[in-house]
Amino acid sequence: MNLSFWLNGKLCNDEVEPGMMLLELLRTKGCYSVKCGCETSNCGLCTVLMDDRPVLSCSVPALRAEGKKIVTMEGMQKEAEEFGSFLADEGAEQCGFCNPGFIMNIFAMERELTDPTEEEIQEYLAGNLCRCSGFVGQTRSIRKYLAYKESQKKEGIRE
């Protein structure tokens, strides 16, 4: 069946099988940052943005992307580098396999929550599992990143 959607800012037209999930389609289209970690919608590794909202691409039928804007980490390389530097400075990226889904959800959180408390951050990201870091290093990096973004914003206002 024909599917037309926006992938990382580009309009795509694809012929897809009726049962195909978005995750599979994205990987065949070269978005290898999108990982699969389970079959039960529990790990968050496959998180992408669909019309700015974080979704599990393993659970979205590809055909539901019709007309929607899908963004993967391939489309947010600069932002990924920016946040990723904070994560890397904690050594909390570790094996890296959960990073893309986790970082995409941070971007979604930034969009949805203003000035989130630590509790709100933890709750927003609860669906992103990580087995290496024990999470605390990730939290440190988020705190530092948000403070940095805040200071950038303030500088922007001053200028």
């Binding site: 974080p54 990201l125 609860a126 669906g127």
Partner: peptide
């Protein structure tokens, strides 16, 4: 609702 897996899950 807030205990159900995660935000991405609840968006789906």
């Amino acid at each position: 609702l807030r205990h159900i897996v995660g935000v991405q899950f609840r968006n789906c």
